Amino acid sequence: MPDSERRRIGGIPLRAFAPNAITILALCSGLTGVRFAIDGEWAAAITMIIVAGVLDGMDGRIARLLRAQSKFGAELDSLSDVIAFGVAPAMILFFWSLDEAPKFGWTAALALAVCCALRLARFNSRMDADFQPHKSAGFMTGIPAPAGAGLSFVPVYLWLVTDNDLFRQWYVVMPWALGIAMLMISAIPTYSWSSIRLRRSWRIFALAGVGLFGAAMVTAPWWTLLAVCALYMIALPFGLASYAKVRRRG
């Protein structure tokens, strides 16, 4: 009996349901961040976007682990990413700062959401392409949506740790948000998890680093996120150099 007929008669196995449920939770986390932003609870709003990012990192891996990948799941994941890492961050930044801009505040917020959608549309349109030079070399094109959302909140992190209203001014937030939006739709090669390799001798140190990172996120989350964002931005030119090196090797 074909698999499609078996699914129609016997229903959908639970293992195929789990990844999509996690994706829905990520979507709901992003929208809940907007709800907290409306109430002025900025730390909670950012936390919900971070939770969405963690869930987004889990759903695809769980789908592959359970062999539950599907076209429906891929489409749902993209829609969730647009909302959780494009629309939600744009609205949070608008409520937090950009609504004070005399002009173009909403336009800057829209740019972040639109560029996130464009990046995901480009990614989906190339999934079945025979030639993807960045992907074949282990790189991504532009910064991914979750990373873009996290980077867009750098002024909020700085405001939370310093309580300096300078970081909340629209003329600081607007160019930063526009810059991150441009990076999302840019063609620069960026590191992906598949391009990172750990030596066996570094495995224990890496595990210890993960533990320390978790402790830092609990005790000083905003400083930790600032450090992660700084390291990511520093890694961008190294990604360009690494990709150029791979290209030269043929």
Rank of each mutant, 00 (worst) to 15 (best):
R8P: 00
P13Q: 06
P13A: 03
A21C: 13
I22A: 10
T23E: 01
I24Y: 07
L25A: 15
L25C: 13
L27M: 10
L27S: 06
T32Q: 03
G33Q: 02
R35Y: 15
A37H: 04
A37G: 12
I38W: 15
A43K: 13
V51K: 08
V54T: 07
R61E: 07
A63R: 00
R64M: 06
R67L: 06
G73K: 07
G73D: 07
G73I: 04
L79T: 09
L79S: 04
V82G: 05
I83H: 10
I92Q: 01
L93E: 05
F94M: 07
F94A: 01
S97V: 01
A113V: 02
A113E: 06
A113Q: 08
C115P: 01
A117Y: 04
D130E: 14
G138E: 05
F139A: 01
F139H: 05
M140R: 07
T141G: 06
T141F: 04
I143Y: 03
A147F: 06
A147N: 01
V156T: 10
W159V: 01
V161F: 05
N164Y: 13
N164H: 14
D165M: 11
L166K: 09
R168H: 10
R168N: 04
Y171R: 09
V172M: 14
A177Y: 03
I180Q: 00
I188H: 11
T190P: 06
Y191F: 15
R197S: 13
W202I: 02
A208T: 12
G211L: 15
L212I: 09
M217I: 08
V218Q: 15
L225W: 13
A227G: 11
C229P: 00
R248H: 14
G250C: 03
G250L: 05
